[in-house]
């Protein structure tokens, strides 16, 4: 009974925070609603026996990514605008609702079948979730892990190069007599 109540609370709160993130006027309030969504998704992960992912979700998403968003929001000092929706938002809203209908149509007619793996909840409880996920990631998924590392390096270099101040122009253009 308790997991059901927890699930309903999490479902209601996460959908409400997602709607607030999309609908609020002030960008900083949107960021705070997104923070609430991230915490409730971490609650879902705990409900699904994925404690390591819940910790990673809170540390990386709420602790690093969201702080980056709020930092840029405050750096740019965005004002709350009178017109915060797109000019032709009614058209795009129609297409979004069309996509929603299609998603639910596919959801209702899919059978949710799949081949069960060998990592049962008992095994996870015996070894601990962190050890199980670590052994899997360093045995079977080692190459993707390295690729993600290279990807992060590229993303950081790209961000620094993009946001760096250009040095003042020098050389042949100014040396003309």
């Amino acid at each position: 009974m308790v997991p059901q109540l927890f699930f309903y609370y999490l479902a209601f709160a996460s959908v409400a925070s997602a709607v607030l993130t999309v609908g609020l006027r002030n960008p900083v309030h949107c960021g705070l609603a997104l923070l609430s969504l991230l915490f409730h998704i971490a609650g879902f992960f705990i409900l699904l026996n994925a404690e390591f992912l819940a910790a990673v979700q809170i540390i990386i998403y709420a602790g690093a990514i969201l702080v980056l968003y709020l930092f840029v929001l405050m750096l740019l000092n965005l004002k709350t605008e009178e017109r915060y929706l797109h000019r032709r938002y009614a058209l795009w809203l129609f297409f979004g609702l069309l996509a929603a209908g299609q998603a639910f149509w596919f959801l209702l007619r899919s059978p949710f079948a799949g081949k069960p793996g060998d990592v049962t909840p008992e095994k996870v409880t015996q070894f601990g979730h962190t050890q199980t996920i670590g052994i899997t990631i360093f045995n079977e998924y080692f190459l993707p892990f390295e690729i993600v590392g290279v990807f992060l390096l590229g993303a950081i270099i790209g961000a620094i190069v993009l946001a760096k101040d250009r040095p003042p122009a020098e050389g042949p253009r100014e040396s003309a007599p």
Binding site: C30, L76, L85, G96, L107
Partner: peptide, 21 residues
Amino acid sequence: VSSVLFITGLIGVLIRRNFII
């Protein structure tokens, strides 16, 4: 729940004006 969240995000991408949002 996950598809409701996904559709909310999709509608947000489509209708908002602010890049950060």
